[in-house]
Design a protein around this nucleic acid. Structure first.
Lengths: 144, 144
DNA sequence: TATTGTTATACTCTATAACTATA
DNA sequence: TATAGTTATAGAGTATAACAATA
């Protein structure tokens, strides 16, 4: 079996349901989807320019200005003027932001591990085996 | 291999990226996530009570009242008083709403089929083989 | 002139609280 | 009293357009 017709449809519907599920598993900090992405990117890549954050998360620059403003107010991120170019703003994780990020990851990880553990062993193997393939599926677009 | 430690963490991170990807694939109608869910549920289960829609999608009753109001204004759904109990509101798909739903599903399906087709055959098999397991993973919570 | 970011304005989406209508 | 739904109010989150500051 190389590729069933309609695999995309089934993958899409399954992911849509999984999506809502995952969201409910990580509640620390009560972050919006975009705020969650910002936190994760800052945690993974270190401090970044405001424009770069806007580009990566797919929102406009004004939207990112406001979001970073709210996140700074809530103590999740820090802002500083970039060295060399005084127009730029460098956004970084605060200590509290890093803690929230870690808490959210732990919540999802333990909840999903628990759920996976209840599944039939064959299903567990199937999902574990598909993760690298799903990762490459995402990479195939992100790289473009 | 029954279950690797950290499989939940990896699944979570992969899904988070897939999630954003899927969203960008279906743009017809420019629907919000909740509106998308409402449309999909109405398409799959037929007309439903407003309260039932609110419960299923995980938003409050007032939020659903307003969302349905906007969707009715945009010609996506219809409203009618329920038979027998004149307090109730039955929400159904309009012809246009059904068309938008079909268009969005087709967009995602073809886009994902295309992406899947570019993957290594082994990866395609791995993903196709994991779909039923992922479906059961979701069912294991939804049923509770 | 071009780039970086902010401010102004308007709309969607959501929640909580208070309300109306029906049962 | 209880249930179904709406209205009022406030805030997050987003976009486009106009602006200020720096390069």
């Amino acid at each position: 079996m190389r590729q069933r017709a309609g695999a995309g449809e089934e993958l899409s519907l399954t992911l849509e349901r999984l999506l809502r599920l995952i969201r409910e598993l990580s509640t620390s900090g009560a972050l919006s989807p975009t705020a969650s992405t910002v936190l994760a990117r800052l945690g993974g890549s270190g401090p970044m320019r405001l424009t770069e954050l806007a580009r990566i998360t797919g929102v406009t620059q004004p939207a990112m200005t406001q979001l970073v403003g709210r996140m700074e107010r809530d103590g999740l991120v820090t802002r500083e003027v970039t060295k060399g170019d005084r127009r730029g703003v460098l956004v970084g994780l605060s200590e509290q932001g890093a803690a929230v990020l870690a808490a959210r990851r732990a919540e999802r990880a333990t909840a999903l591990d628990d759920l996976l553990g209840r599944l039939d062993p064959d299903d567990q193997v199937a999902i574990a085996g598909a993760l690298p393939a799903l990762g490459r599926l995402v990479d195939s677009i992100t790289a473009e």
